[in-house]
């Protein structure tokens, strides 16, 4: 529980909470970007450099930009905020907040309720070389399946987003 962890956790929580509470979707994406950068920093702090930089490339570089494109393509002419702008306590807000709070309470209770066991505190040294060796030997079948999945997702996304009746629009 170091100071670095607390700072990075605060960045992550503030960013993601902002992403889920702002009214303007573009502001939400900005908050999401801050939160995901904080999470990538946490990965780096934990010693998983490859995963941290992958997180930045994939989420900050691709998913956030993709979401911004989707928002701009779906709400171009209209005002970019959700319709009912009054912050008020609605039943849906109450139920959703209760469910999320209950999930957090149960998870926290499960973690803090049991005595803390001994952990291995030696920082593991992991190189990209090791990750590549494992990907090419032990995990080569999942890697190939991922390649097929990414190809299918790429083709599927293009087909889904392609305009179908060109003459009518």
């Amino acid at each position: 529980m170091t100071l670095i962890f607390l700072i990075l956790a605060a960045i992550t929580i503030v960013g993601t909470a902002a992403a889920m509470s702002f009214r303007n979707p573009i502001h939400c994406i900005l908050g999401l970007t801050v939160g995901l950068v904080g999470l990538a920093m946490l990965f780096l702090h934990l010693g998983a450099q490859f995963v941290g930089f992958t997180q930045i490339i994939v989420y900050v570089g691709a998913v956030a930009i993709l979401a911004v494109f989707a928002i701009m393509m779906t709400q171009g002419g209209r005002r970019l905020t959700e319709t009912a702008t009054k912050p008020q306590i609605t039943p849906s807000l109450l139920v959703g907040g209760t469910v999320a709070g209950a999930v957090f309470a149960v998870l926290g209770w499960a973690m803090l309720g049991r005595p803390s066991t001994a952990i291995h505190s030696v920082q593991p040294v992991v190189s990209v070389n090791q990750i590549g060796q494992l990907l090419m030997h032990n995990y080569v079948l999942p890697l190939e399946i991922m390649a097929v999945l990414l190809t299918a997702a790429l083709i599927g996304a293009v087909i889904l987003a392609m305009p179908q009746e060109r003459g009518k629009r």
Binding site: T12, L42, V99, A100, F104, L112
Partner: peptide
């Protein structure tokens, strides 16, 4: 705990 909080924010 941080992960649980992140999950709850996403769920909410």
């Amino acid at each position: 705990l941080l992960s649980a909080l992140l999950f709850s924010i996403g769920l909410a």
